[in-house]
Amino acid sequence: MAHIDYYFSTISPYAYLAGARLEEIAAKHGATITYKPLDIMAQFSRTGGTSPKDRHVSRQEYRAMDLVRQAKMLGMDFNLKPAHWPTNMAPSSYAVIAAAKAGGGDVGALVQSLMRACWVEEKDIAEDSVIKECLTNAGFDPSLADSGLLVGAETYARNLEDAVEAGAFGAPFYVTDDGARFWGQDRLVYLDQHLADAS
């Protein structure tokens, strides 16, 4: 059975635009997924990237145009300048980690709910009430937002180390168990083909 390590940031617009396609591809090929939220700003600094606000104006302008284009092509609601971005990624990431460990709900749906809250619903995903709502919507106990914080912090930090070691330098980033790497939601079609070829 194939496996995919999914490295992402809960505030990444490109990870939001991935929607449920990773989960659909995994189900199609009988693959499993490990969700590995990380601090994307730390990842940038570790792997030669630059924070969006520090990029040359031409890159910032292109990113803005490209995000709107991609959202339109995908038929997804999208707010280019959400009220609560950037925000603290850690609380929502800890919730994803706790939910994956606890089980009983849909981790993919939780990740998508958190990102939709940021990029569509004008909610601050660093807030406890927003995280609990997303946990509930994905079938998890909302109290997970208040538990396992130490484990969450340790796992969150380890995910960054794992990403750097695996060669992941942005988000979303997908790494298969045979070492194939795919960067960006627009590369999911290549991940799909890779899994088909490997089966």
Results as ranks from 00 to 15, higher is better:
Asp178Thr: 15
Phe169Trp: 13
Met1Trp: 05
Arg46Cys: 13
Val57Gln: 13
Leu114Cys: 03
Gly170Ala: 15
Lys28Cys: 02
Pro52Leu: 13
Ala71Trp: 02
Ala83Met: 12
Asn79His: 13
Met1Gln: 09
Asp197Ile: 03
Asp162Val: 10
Asn88Met: 09
Ala27Arg: 08
Leu38Arg: 11
Gln193Trp: 09
Gly139Asp: 04
Ser129Asp: 15
Ala109Pro: 05
Gly184Lys: 00
Glu24Asp: 12
Lys53Phe: 13
Met1Glu: 08
Asp5His: 00
Asn137Gln: 14
Pro13Cys: 08
Asp66Cys: 11
Met65Asn: 11
Arg46Glu: 15
Trp183Leu: 13
Thr34Ser: 14
Lys28Gln: 14
Lys36Gln: 11
Ala157Ser: 14
Pro86Lys: 09
Gly184Asn: 06
Gly184Ile: 02
Ser12Val: 02
Ser93Phe: 03
Glu161Ser: 14
Pro52Ala: 13
Leu67Trp: 07
Asp186Thr: 03
Val189Asn: 10
Ile33Glu: 00
Cys134Gly: 03
Asp77Leu: 05
Ala90Met: 14
Gly167Val: 05
Phe44Val: 07
Lys28Ile: 01
Asp186His: 03
Val175Thr: 02
Tyr35Cys: 01
Lys81Gly: 04
Gln193Ser: 10
Ser143Asp: 14
Pro86Leu: 10
Gly49Lys: 10
Ile11Asp: 04
Leu149His: 15
Leu74Asp: 08
Met89Tyr: 08
Gly103Asn: 10
Leu74Tyr: 12
Lys72Ile: 02
Gln60Asp: 11
Thr47Ser: 13
Asn159Val: 01
Ala99Phe: 07
Arg69Met: 10
Arg46Asn: 12
Leu80Phe: 05
Asp66His: 15
Ser58Asn: 11
Ile125Tyr: 08
Ala90Cys: 06
Trp119Met: 04
Gly103Lys: 08
Gly103Gln: 09
Gly148Arg: 08
Glu165Gly: 12
